[in-house]
Design a protein around this nucleic acid. Structure first.
Length: 592
DNA sequence: CGGCTTTGACCAGCGC
DNA sequence: GCGCTGGTCAAAGCCG
């Protein structure tokens, strides 16, 4: 009988997620993110509401039903199987959960259609049994069948309740993460303000910087959302203004404008790309490269063009601004991680100190897209794939690609912002780390020592082992979300690590906040610490279950990065996502 | 046949 | 100035 699947699935959700299609998982992942982002105005208290809902799941209200459906469906599936639940069950909650279970199974088992039928039967029985003993007896089914089905239904209900509780706990975790993030961001803004004030005092000659400071020196809480985004916006233009004023000679010089282009200079890029004649079979020599690679790897040429010391901008600042990279470390057997973009390999080199060659890829999803990436295996651990992104896409992207693009853009933007907002061209790495990945800061590594700042998203190490691999110049934060080896590690392995990491992260965030801030802003976050001790074991399990589904997808690297970046972007006034959109919009409008 | 990969060569920056 | 290294180009070959 097929009905066994439901129980098996409930008991071990990992199994059901072994073979998910990447897209649904990613979608679900992003939907979760969106749920986080959507309530921008209510950002500080989005989840407690949602979470509390689960506790009172005994009361089946209409509103509750809505939320339940959204939450359940978003997390595990993308379809509208609700239609399948044709049973007129009064218990809304159980109905919603049934839908969820069905979806899980559809992922895990290769029984898309048949499972639906089976489920329908179960639902009908569930409805009857769940509501009351008033079983509609056809007279056809025997008592034995009734009893069996009832017992199964009871088990199902128990499992469903358990899943509901787990879902609620997941939401708890998310809310905690969100809250911690918000608090961290506020902290970041405050620190940035302090830094900038100090620097402003120290160097009074900073003309353009003053405008920036004025903007920054607004006020506490609402600023948090406005200030940071505005910094990005202001920084870009200011940088460009400098660039243009200094070198109005040619377009290529603009390309020297570092990652500010990512945020604001997309118009120019589009113009450049519009002019660049990529169409004639191939690119027209290197002359065009600077255009296309304005934000890319062509720093050497850029440097050459910008090298004249006559520039007013500090050289070190420019060097810092010149390039910002986002490096993703992930365990993978695959030659490179799937990030949703189309890449063309244009070179390969043997890097010093690494027996594994470094491959150079260029985005080919659009003509003239400046985004490039390097793929290289870690010399120490060849199972670790290091993918370094640079540049910003100038074209629409599929969701999976938007994920990574948002990550790179967000991280680069933060780096750029830090560079720009700091007098000496280098922002405090600690601040950057927190700014870029406040929710999973332990995964973020910022290297400010490099010629170009690099953000490293480390998805490979346990918190314990992570410390070892880092050069001292890198900032380390004691938490890592580490889907171990996406390609080869079995699903059950993943959630443990990641779940623990998530727990640790939440815990860490709370501690850090309490230590560093200790301000009244964080009072509302005392909740996490209350929850932790009692819920720790089940939290891990809960997160494990959800993580199993997510991490089973080989694109999890991109998805995770996307989630992180999307959180960043959402907090930064949609700096990244909207940025991408903004780029596209600008390009379009510019062409017209 | 078009697109992609491979691979040797070229170029520029940087350190000694 | 020289050598090393990183990054890119582009011709040749491969593949669907």
């Amino acid at each position: 009988m097929d009905k066994g699947w439901g129980l098996a699935l409930d008991c071990d959700p990992h199994i059901s997620f072994n073979k998910p299609s990447s897209a649904p998982v990613l979608d679900s992942f992003f939907k979760i993110k969106k749920n986080l982002d959507v309530p921008d105005s209510v950002k500080m208290f989005p989840f407690p509401v949602t979470v509390s809902r689960r506790d009172d799941h005994a009361s089946p209200s209409a509103a509750d039903d809505n939320r339940v459906v959204v939450g359940e469906v978003d997390f595990f599936s993308d379809s509208k199987n609700i239609a399948v639940s044709d049973n007129r069950n009064d218990d809304d909650e159980s109905k919603a959960t049934c839908v969820t279970v069905k979806k899980e199974n559809s992922y895990g088992e290769a029984a898309p259609r048949s499972s639906l039928h089976v489920n329908t039967g179960l639902h009908l029985l569930t409805a009857n049994t769940g509501s009351d003993q008033s079983t509609v007896d056809d007279g056809v089914s025997s008592d034995v069948d009734d009893k069996r089905s009832k017992s199964e239904l009871a088990q199902l209900q128990v499992e469903l309740q358990r899943m509901n509780v787990e879902n609620q706990r997941l939401r708890d975790m998310l809310s905690q993460v969100t809250n911690n993030y918000n608090a961290l961001q506020m902290h970041l803004v405050a620190l940035m303000q302090q830094q900038q004030q100090q620097q402003q005092q120290q160097q009074n000659h900073g003309t353009e910087a003053n405008q920036e400071h004025e903007v920054v020196q607004v006020k506490p809480e609402e600023k948090k959302h406005e200030v940071v985004p505005r910094q990005f916006l202001d920084l870009g233009p200011s940088a460009e203004t400098d660039e243009m004023s200094h070198s109005s000679s040619d377009e290529r010089t603009r390309s020297a404008t570092p990652l500010a282009n990512m945020e604001t200079a997309s118009v120019k890029n589009s113009a450049n790309q519009e002019n660049s004649s990529f169409r004639d079979g191939k690119r027209i020599g290197r002359e065009e490269s600077p255009d296309s690679g304005s934000q890319g790897w062509n720093h050497s040429k850029v440097q050459k063009l910008n090298s004249p010391p006559s520039k007013g901008i500090d050289q070190s600042t420019e060097a810092t601004m010149r390039k910002a990279r986002v490096s993703v470390r992930a365990r993978s057997e695959a030659p490179m991680i799937t990030d949703g973009c189309q890449w063309r390999k244009y070179g390969q080199k043997m890097a010093k100190g690494n027996p594994c060659p470094r491959a150079y890829y260029r985005c080919t999803m659009a003509v003239g897209c400046p985004v490039r990436k390097q793929v290289q295996r870690c010399a120490d651990d060849r199972t670790i794939l290091i993918t370094t992104y640079e540049g910003s896409h100038n074209h629409p992207l599929p969701p999976a690609a938007v994920a990574m693009a948002s990550t790179t853009t967000a991280a680069a933007s933060m780096l750029l912002s830090g560079s720009m907002s700091s007098a000496d061209g280098l922002m405090n790495p600690n601040l950057l780390a927190r700014a870029i990945l406040p929710c999973s800061s332990s995964m973020a590594t910022i290297s400010a020592s490099a010629p170009f700042p690099t953000v490293t998203l480390d998805l490979t190490h346990n918190p314990n082992s992570q410390q070892v691999l880092r050069p001292p110049t890198h900032l380390q934060v004691p938490f890592a979300g580490q889907p171990q080896n996406f390609a080869s590690v079995t699903a059950p392995q993943l959630p443990q690590v990641f779940g623990q990491a998530l727990y640790n992260q939440s815990k860490f965030s709370g501690l850090q906040l309490s230590q560093e801030m200790g301000s009244s802003q964080l009072h509302h976050q005392s909740q996490p610490q209350q929850l932790q001790p009692a819920q720790q074991p089940s939290l891990v399990d809960t997160v494990n279950a959800a993580t199993a589904a997510i991490t089973a997808d080989p694109n999890f690297t991109a998805a995770l990065a996307a989630a992180i970046s999307s959180i960043i972007s959402g907090a930064n006034g949609n700096a990244t996502t909207s940025n991408n959109n903004g780029n596209i919009t600008n390009n379009t409008s510019n062409r017209n």
